[in-house]
Design a protein around this nucleic acid. Structure first.
Lengths: 365, 365
DNA sequence: TACCGTTTTGAATCCAAGG
DNA sequence: TCCTTGGATTCAAAACGGT
């Protein structure tokens, strides 16, 4: 790692993963240099014993060393240290996201406030497919909490209101986000087929965070990088990233993963900035959930084409906007139902995008 | 208020509203006397206008961080004080609920943990009809957070799992609850038609809290009683309540409100309970009563067999012991429910031995 | 291939009574 | 208080395997 230029001023290791303790590494970075920090710190779960499912299979719990703290005081000290270091390297108008569960999020939130961060929202990630409570002793722990905070009160933080509104089908985005947990092909596996990292976050979550609170070209730092979800999504969305991770194995995995990610075109990354008519269904969720990729080409029965953008709008030759607007423009029609008008290609077939909407609706009940 | 009996022991002012400061009032109540506390504390952190240190000396607004920290300290002290007083009057197996928003809930949660309370769940009240964000500068704040905690780790808290499962269409209740905010007839109005209390909670929220974590006859205390939603729902559900409220106007309003509430019949208040609550029937009774004969062969679904012995133990090839022990050993499992594992033969059919237990329980009524 | 039933799994502070 | 033992307890989604 080379952080010091000839001039003596420290410089930024953009789009790199630094292996080391995040507090030390952040202290070596230049102050006021980062636009956004996304942090997924250890939760301090304090698990006491093994847990079995009703079918007697064992639950693979988070029992890693990095999640063990001797006491709340220890955890508070750790939290104060890394948050202080994070605050120093944030630009004045920068912001931070921290995700956690009830085990740690209250301590994180209180420390954020005490250090002078200004909480903008707490956001609930409602899991559509959480792990149930096997013993029937509590409520299903079906959510995690994210805190979004600016560096200080009164700062001019970035918030792409219209883009999030577009992602949410034309109505303003709420503080509760329904997203599935990270499974399937997206979940990185070790050589033995087991999960590579115990707490990998879904890309859809980072997608929404980065579209909401950064612009293309911004620098996003993740001090608990893990297998690099933040970096992968940042690269895809045309943001620069800095990853810090203590475990060398995770670093290697993340480097390979991010190398395979393709940066999206600039035109695709542009997000809505003007008020538009309100579509009826959140097409943007198809993009967030990866059912459609930003940059993917949709076709109509009449042969017109358009590209999907990161915020769930479309761009064709001369038009951009919602699926309905672009369809109407291309047909010279007063209106158009984009859900039946647009198709995507799968296995040589043109399939209406409405199929994907139905799929999401089925998942959400 | 009369809290002291002739004997000198303090007694409980059941189904009364006490007008006064909740910390003082709780300190005057007998310790370990309350089953549940529901609290909706104020979160007026007064960050912008608060220009006074804890000792009331004025702060020149030079060091913003220090000023902010000072006022958080004030709020933390207040939180510690009322939570400590609350903890003292809780029964050992009692529990507490606190509701709040991102302004205060992190400080409340951290203090709860530091005082020794043991968090069981954080619950998200997802508002189906939240107030929109008018300025478009943040996400719609569409939820509030509740924390459910037992008095200490390892305590035997009350949780009516089956009742909540029934409330949720037969699948276990999750940590996110979708409920509308309090409006319409339920919302208390002043004489001029304006809302009587700024933060009146919906009865549905209290209904779910009380059904989940209390039983009929339990004592529920609310230290920030307001217009008495907790008392109204408690009375309706056949729980006793104690309300503490500083504002005399709210106290009067709450008294009138609760007087109009009708207590539900006992039969209606019964909720579904789990099998765990049913009387224990030793397997040996099946043999004693002749429902199974010594020497009879039991079979499992997986095809294992074992013989019943006269003392109510089983013997298989290499193992002998209880129905559970032998089942676990044969399956190589850490545990096994012998009641559902083992079957006996009747008319060519394999019938679970649990059927015989249910038969005995029915006779016992 | 397509379909259908089975198996696996996910940041979890996950038992209670009796001796 | 510790130790033993009885016996109660799961939802959604994706992967997997067989026809």
């Amino acid at each position: 790692m080379e952080l010091v230029q000839a001039s003596g001023a420290a410089t930024l290791p953009l789009n790199e993963i630094i292996c080391g303790d995040c507090i030390e590494v952040m202290r070596a970075l230049p102050e006021a240099s980062v636009d956004l920090i996304f942090a997924d710190p250890p939760y301090n779960l304090q698990l006491k014993s093994e847990l079995h499912r009703p079918d007697n299979s064992r639950v693979d719990a988070v029992d890693d060393d990095w999640d063990r703290f001797a006491s709340f005081e220890d955890y508070d000290r750790f939290t104060r240290d890394w948050l202080s270091a994070a605050r120093r390297i944030l630009k004045p108008n920068g912001a931070i996201w921290v995700i956690g569960s009830y085990h740690n999020i209250f301590r994180v939130g209180a420390t954020l406030q005490s250090l002078g961060f200004w909480i903008l929202n707490d956001v609930i990630w409602r899991k559509s497919n959480p792990m149930p409570n096997f013993r029937g002793k509590r409520l299903t722990n079906a959510h995690e909490t994210l805190i979004w905070a600016s560096r200080e009160e009164g700062a001019k933080y970035t918030f792409n209101y219209e883009a999030l509104k577009a992602l949410n089908d034309g109505v303003q985005m709420r503080s509760d986000w329904v997203l599935p947990i990270c499974t399937g092909h997206e979940r990185l596996k070790g050589e033995d087929g087991s999960k590579a990292h115990p707490t990998q976050k879904p890309q859809a979550l980072l997608h929404r965070v980065l579209v909401a609170t950064t612009n293309p070209g911004d620098v996003v730092l993740d001090p608990f990088f893990g297998t690099g979800t933040t970096g992968a999504v940042a690269k895809m969305l045309g943001r620069d990233f800095i990853g810090i991770e203590r475990d060398e194995g995770y670093v290697k995995l993340a480097r390979r993963r991010i190398a395979d990610v393709r940066r999206l075109d600039r035109a695709v990354l542009e997000v809505s900035s003007s008020r538009r008519a309100e579509p009826r269904v959140p097409f943007g969720q198809l993009v967030e959930r990866g059912l459609l990729r930003p940059g993917e080409v949709l076709v109509s029965v009449s042969g017109k084409t358009a590209k999907v953008r990161a915020d769930g709008t479309l761009v064709a030759q001369d038009v951009k906007g919602s699926i309905h607007q672009v369809g109407a423009a291309l047909e010279g029609a007063p209106s158009c139902n984009g859900w039946t008008y647009w198709h995507f290609r799968r296995d040589g077939q043109a399939v209406p995008i409405d199929v994907l909407r139905q799929q999401i609706r089925a998942e959400m009940n």
